[in-house]
């Protein structure tokens, strides 16, 4: 067992964990924050996406003890049913989900990719690596492709993200 401390959604937590515990299982099993999902446990599906220090990661591919002092944001930290984040609200209105299992990961990625674009980070489909990338459907689809939605809500998700990006700009 190893002690580790970090913040989750702004709250400090201190855990004593089996070193084999992933960040995802620390959140789901130890902190009972089950919004982050385990779809594959192998970094293949993106359902476990959370933000660590402002960057999205697959929390299943990361051991909890590697996150000493980090700031973790999960879907629960973005908003609540009573007070949804604009992206959560847009997903509801555009029906950007069906079964809901990939949805927290999709929403965390959605929020994160808009920050990535704003920060000028290029993607595989950015024509000019030195130019400021723009929020286009092509950029959104490329950047979101690590988040699988087997229900196939992609077309609606892109609409939701596009709307939020437009409002932000």
């Amino acid at each position: 067992m190893t002690k580790v401390s970090f913040t989750v959604n702004g709250q400090a937590v201190a855990l004593s964990l089996d070193t084999r515990t992933t960040l995802l299982d620390a959140l789901r099993e130890h902190l009972q924050l089950t919004g982050s999902k385990k779809g594959c446990d192998h970094g293949q599906c993106g359902a476990c996406t959370v933000m660590v220090n402002g960057r999205r990661i697959n929390s299943c591919l990361s051991l909890a003890v590697m996150h000493e002092g980090n700031e973790v944001t999960t879907i629960e930290g973005l908003g609540s049913p009573e007070s949804m984040h604009p992206m959560q609200d847009a997903f509801v209105r555009h029906d950007g989900y069906q079964c809901g299992y990939c949805t927290p990961g999709q929403i965390c990625s959605s929020v994160a990719i808009l920050e990535e674009i704003k920060a000028g980070i290029p993607s595989h489909v950015s024509a000019d690596l030195n130019a400021q990338p723009r929020v286009t459907p092509e950029e959104i689809r490329e950047r979101m492709s690590g988040n699988i939605c087997r229900c196939g809500a992609y077309s609606n998700i892109v609409d939701a993200i596009t709307e939020v990006a437009g409002r932000q700009a």
Binding site: R28, Q32, L33, T34, G35, S36, K37, K38, T74, I75, E76, L78, G79, S80, P81, E82, M84, Q88, D89, F91, V92, R93, D95, Y97, G100, Y101, T103, P104, I107
Partner: peptide, 21 residues
């Protein structure tokens, strides 16, 4: 109409089978 379970699902509050703490 929007799904009535939407706010639960999009905020990570809809509990699935393995999450019933």
């Amino acid at each position: 109409l929007n799904r009535i379970d939407g706010p639960l699902k999009t905020t990570g509050r809809a509990p699935y089978a393995y999450e019933r703490h």
